[in-house]
Simulated scan of single mutants.
Amino acid sequence: MVSPTSPIGVFDSGVGGLTVLHELLVSLPSEDYVYLGDTARFPYGERTQAELKVFAAQIADHLLAAGAKLLVIACNAASSAALHSLQNHLQSIGSDVDVIGVIAPATQLAVAGSRSGRIGVLATRATVLSGAYATAVAAADPHVHLESVACPDLAPAIQSGFPFDEALVEMIRGYCAPLTEAEVDTVILGCTHYPLVAPMLQRALGRGVSLVSSGAGVARSVERALAARQRLNPRPGEGSYRFQCTAAPDRFREVGVRFLQLPFGAVELVNVAPVDMVAP
């Protein structure tokens, strides 16, 4: 049964969503969290919309069974493809658990912060093709111009350990070039992996460009959603957090430590889907 002391469920295709979990742990320290990385089916950025809807429903069912009182889709590709279908899925099974994605919080921060009304977004191919950011920006302010750039190789490079070498620098410069040409003054990091290379992105874009990630906005949205249902954890001290993944738990922990920037405990290996759906 859902209660104020139940955990918040957070999920992503891999370790990128740990940048969102970091913000949640800092902003809402009294809460308990369970984080799931679907590493067996990483990367989500190359998946179809239909696949992502299925994956999101499977993970949601798993986290609900673990007692989650709210779900955070800490992945741009899954948020763009599956937020609404997941909300409908939860409604269909009689659950009143809220689902928070990462698209709207990042968009709101970017639109509010842009001086010129020219915004860029760096994201996976699936997120760009979904048009989710274009829709969100138009809804927030129809006069804002959005320049979208798909970065198919960046999240896999970061997930693998992202050596800070010249090849990665050149990759980032190439992805940032269209945004520089478009004269944007604000860039949304439209993948939760990207904050880990924010200094390299900032250097390529120039100091006059503001970078916006979703973590802080998501934390505010989570707090409002829990407060509205009177589900904020009342404990005075710090809560707990634990990790699950669907493949390679040792590797998940090794890379995840860099993303979370907080103590990292054991990682539980779990299966959230039929075996024939696990392989990419």
Results as ranks from 00 to 15, higher is better:
Pro7Val: 01
Ile8Cys: 09
Gly14Tyr: 08
Val15Arg: 10
His22Leu: 10
Val26Trp: 14
Ser27Phe: 05
Ser27Asp: 11
Pro29Arg: 14
Asp32His: 13
Tyr35Gln: 11
Asp38Met: 10
Pro43Trp: 06
Tyr44Asp: 06
Ala50Pro: 06
Lys53Pro: 00
Ala56Asn: 06
Lys69Phe: 15
Lys69Leu: 13
Val72Lys: 03
Ile73Asp: 03
Ala74Val: 09
Ala77Tyr: 07
Ala78Tyr: 02
Ser79Trp: 08
Ala81Asp: 02
Asn88Asp: 13
Asn88Gly: 15
Ser92Val: 04
Ser92Ile: 03
Gly94Gln: 05
Asp96Ala: 10
Val99Tyr: 03
Val99Phe: 04
Gly101Ser: 13
Gly101Glu: 12
Val102Pro: 10
Pro105Cys: 06
Ala106Ser: 14
Val111Pro: 02
Ser114Lys: 00
Ser116Tyr: 00
Leu122Lys: 00
Arg125Lys: 13
Thr127Phe: 04
Thr127Glu: 04
Thr127Pro: 05
Gly131Ser: 03
Ala139Ile: 10
Asp141His: 04
His143Met: 07
Glu147Ile: 00
Ser148Cys: 04
Cys151Thr: 02
Leu154His: 07
Ala155Thr: 08
Ala157Glu: 07
Phe164Trp: 12
Phe164Cys: 11
Phe164Leu: 15
Met171Cys: 05
Gly174Arg: 11
Glu183Arg: 04
Val184Asp: 01
Val184Tyr: 00
Thr186His: 01
Thr186Leu: 02
Ile188His: 00
Leu189Gly: 12
Cys191Met: 09
Thr192Gly: 02
Leu196Arg: 12
Gln202Asn: 04
Ala204Lys: 00
Leu205Trp: 01
Gly206Gln: 05
Arg207Phe: 04
Arg207Tyr: 06
Gly208Tyr: 03
Gly208Thr: 11
Arg220Gly: 07
Arg220Tyr: 06
Val222Asp: 06
Ala225Gln: 13
Ala225Met: 09
Leu226Cys: 10
Pro236Gln: 15
Gly239Leu: 06
Ser240His: 15
Tyr241Lys: 04
Arg242Phe: 08
Cys245Trp: 05
Ala247Tyr: 05
Phe252His: 01
Phe252Ala: 01
Arg253Ser: 07
Val257Thr: 08
Gln261Glu: 13
Pro263Lys: 12
Pro263Val: 02
Gly265Gln: 11
Gly265Phe: 04
Ala266Val: 03
Glu268Thr: 12
Leu269Met: 11
Asn271Asp: 12
Asn271Glu: 14
Ala273Ser: 15
Ala279Ile: 12
